[in-house]
Amino acid sequence: MTNKERMLHMVLDDKSLQELYNYDESEYEDLYTAINSENVVVASVARIIKHLDGSTDESDQKKVYMTVFNYINENYIL
């Protein structure tokens, strides 16, 4: 398991998040599956982890934020 996959599992393991957004963490073994999930929150978490790639660079932060923000805006159904 890669570092990113371990991180994905650890974040998706959050009980409050699971309850709020109704997903089963065990369904998402790897980043690819999570990114392609229909669950917007799961997919957002996966996108953050993949695209940021551990960077602390401001421009990288901005890019990733726009990616995730737009993704949620476009895909979350109120």
Binding site: M10, V11, D14, S16, V45, N73, L78
Partner: peptide, 25 residues
């Protein structure tokens, strides 16, 4: 503005999850 509010909420909640995950780690 509803969707923006929701996005902000989701991001906040994801942030809390990262915080918890960091402590767990």
């Amino acid at each position: 503005a509803a969707i923006y509010a929701m996005t902000a909420l989701i991001i906040r909640q994801i942030s809390d999850a990262f915080k918890t995950a960091r402590e767990t780690n």
